[in-house]
Structures are given as structure tokens and as C-alpha cells.
Amino acid sequence: MSNDTSCPNDSLQLQSKLARVLRRARELQPVSAGSTPARDLPHSGTATLYRYGSGEGIPLLVVYSLVNRPYILDLSCERSVIGALVRGGITVYLLDWGYPGPMDRFQRLDDYIEDEIDCAVDNIVARHDTDRISLLGVCQGGTLAVCYAALRRERVRSLITLATPVDFQTPQDTLYRIVRHVNIERLTQALGNVPATGLNTLFTSLKPFQLLYRRYLRLAELGDDEQALQAFLRLEQWMYDSPDQAGAAFVQFVRDFYQANGLVAGNLRLCGKSVDPTRFTGPLFNAYATADHLVPPAAAKALANLTGSLAYHEAEQPGGHLGLFISQHAHRRLYPILVEWLHQCG
């Protein structure tokens, strides 16, 4: 390595670039998220049920994860999953779980399924004068959707799962490695609801160098690209806008899904019944990302062997977890196929 005098200056240049971008970012905040018009509908549960689109299209209920906020699906008009579906003639219903508070501490997964998903399905079925609707589950919401389809198969026309884990003990599953020895009952007893900051810490600690340093260093490269900076800020806001987790539901999810791997082991029970994914025989569209560090491909692909679907379709996408929802590739390739598939399923 030669001794070049330009070296000391480049860190200063980077810092000054970063300072300029940070100042501009500060001016741009707060950024707005959500681009598709929505109506909230009467819903008897504690969640909010939104409708996107005319109400005349094919009804599709989106079941999102409890861990983050669902507006990642409609972050901006250029990369909106909901927008793409609505433009494709689908009437999208979305269950927004909100932010569980101290009084939701004993809310269980059973409650989310029986009182929220099932009530929303009741509502949509009545509005569309049909007996079954399509379900789209995202990440942990996909796992809940798989369980719901197994428990109430007569209500589900077709099932779509995006980045959905079903086998929680695959070799690449880092989350499993961390939680497998945790006494989750005791931890939740100490915490009550599980604070979002704790979960965010866990998630960032899976990729700390990427998420806490590289990500912000790259911010300097955005320079004068206002649109890119806004997109960055929107995603940044979403990443850490996380709800606390209702204690009882969190215990169930970690214990029954991660630690006991209930769906694969075949011993999962919800709503007083055994959850058997083979009971759902309708069309199933399972999409996952190849470099997903939260839901490794194998964790999602395992659904092929668990489901009873007679028309199973699998879609592999390049990139990471979030890329499945906001990447250009997914919006060019995945969502047009998904819309067509939904039309074929009726």
C-alpha cells in the first residue's frame, strides 16, 4: 500500500456530505406514507378493517404481521403492493392490528384468529354476497393465515403467503437459534407486553453492520436525490414504527411456532382445535425471497410439503425480506403474476 496523502481527507469529505444529507432529511421530515385511498369499515374486533378499491372487485383480505405496521404494503405510489392489486381489479381489505396497549396483555393468537380474522371474513363475505374469499398473509400474518385456512377452510377460496415461515427450525433460521433457549413465559411475565424497542433490537442485532452502519453511510451517497431521500426516510420511519406485542400472543408464537415448531410437528392447537394445514385444499400461492434473513427460503418453502392444496404455486424472488414488497423486481415480476393468478382463482 503506498502512502497517499489523499487518505485523511476522504473521511472529512464523507462526513461533510453526510451532514448535508442529514440536514436535508431533517427538513423533509415528517414524511407521509400510504398512497392508496382507503375506507375504514365497521369491525367488531379491536383491529381496524380498511377497504381499498371500488368494492366491486375480487375480495382479498390481507392479514399482516403483528410485529410491524402494514403500511409497508403501501409505502409510496411507485412501490405499493396494495396499489398494484387494486389496479389489477382486486378489492383489498386490510386488517390493521393497531398498537396493543397494557390492557391487551392477555390477548392470544386465538383471539386474533377468532375475533379479528374470522369477523373480518364474515364482514367481507356479507358485503360481496359470497361464501368464501381469498386471503393474503404477510410474514407472521401469513402463518396466521395458514392456520386460519386450516381451521376454516370452507371460508377461504385461495391463499397467498408472502415471506411466510411455517418451518421455524431450518438450519439458516437465526431467530430460532436465539430464542430456542429463552424462557419465554418468564421473560413475558417480567415484561408484560413485549416492548417494540426490544424486538427492534433483536431484529437489528441479526444484521447490525448492515442496518446500523452501512445503511446510514449510504445515505451520504443520496446527495441531492430528493426522491431517494424521501423513500429512505419513509422506510426508516416504517422500520422502527413497531407496535408492542401482546404478551400472551407473543408467548404462544415463540413457544408453539419457534420452540415447538408446531406446524411441522403436527401438534399445534389454536381456538381449541388441532391446526392441520393439509385440510386446506384450495389454490395456494407461496412467494419468498432468496436472501431473506428473517424468513429463510427453506422456512417458507416447507409449506409445499405441509399444505393439502391441490393447486400449489411457488414464486421465488431475488433479494431480502423487504424486497418482496418494495423492490422494483417484485413490482415488475411478482405482482402482475399474482393479480393474474387471483383472477384465475375467481
Binding site: M1, S2, D4, C7, D10, L14, F209, R214
Partner: peptide
């Protein structure tokens, strides 16, 4: 030629990430 501080740091992050991943597993 000398690499810039940024390049060295990127390299540091790359090595650290790889090592950290190994520890996580």
C-alpha cells in the same frame, strides 16, 4: 494505491459482518 478511509471501513464492515454471522450460527 491507497484505499480511502471509506473503502477500508467498508472492508472492516464486510469482515465484521462475516465473522458476526459465524458467531450467530
Amino acid at each position: 494505491t491507497t484505499r480511502s478511509t471509506r473503502e477500508l471501513y467498508d472492508h472492516w464492515l464486510e469482515v465484521a459482518e462475516r465473522t458476526y454471522e459465524r458467531f450467530l450460527h
